[in-house]
Amino acid sequence: MKVQQPINSVKLCGPLCLCGEIPCEQIHHRGTENSQSFTEKSIRIFLKQYGLILVMVCGLLFSSFGFALAKEAQPNEDPQLEQRMKHLTEQLRCLVCQNETLADSRADLAEDLRKQIREQIRAGKTDQEIIAFLTERYGDFVLYNPPVKKTTYLLWFGPFVLLIVGTGVLYRYVKSRREKIKETPLTAAERKQAEEILNA
């Protein structure tokens, strides 16, 4: 296993990103304060004991008010544009918070990218052109729908190949089994012998 460098934990928090609600710098500063007044101490103890609950409550609040809090102004000018925008960004990945779509992510980079995509839609670019703009920069990884090409053949066709091979193997197995247990009718002598045993 690769040894994880400690810096990665900072990186994951994301220089460009506010995947969570707390900017990295605030996390960073928390441990560096020296002065500890009484109130600070009690707040600290409170946080230690109820921190998790607090975080959960905050999480709930933030998730329900997420829209209202988003920094980005919601442009309400053109519903058609927003419709295309939504359709497009829902199939694209935010590279900072990798499990979020570009539509959902609140990372600054995602915000900047949405801005650029809006501009390009206004400039009359087609969806393909906009997707090409992004893949030229970030690679196919931005696409939630991977394109069919040489390196993704296994991904796209592998399951079907497995299905065909599996069906073939199953067919052969069943056939060979049937041959093994083929019924061979009793000869007249055997039948007589069996009857004798049964009637005895």
Binding site: P15, L16, V96, L109, D112, R137
Partner: peptide, 12 residues
């Protein structure tokens, strides 16, 4: 941040 986007920067 446009140049940074042109260079595909996502994790400075």
């Amino acid at each position: 941040g446009r140049t940074s986007i042109d260079y595909g920067v996502y994790g400075a």
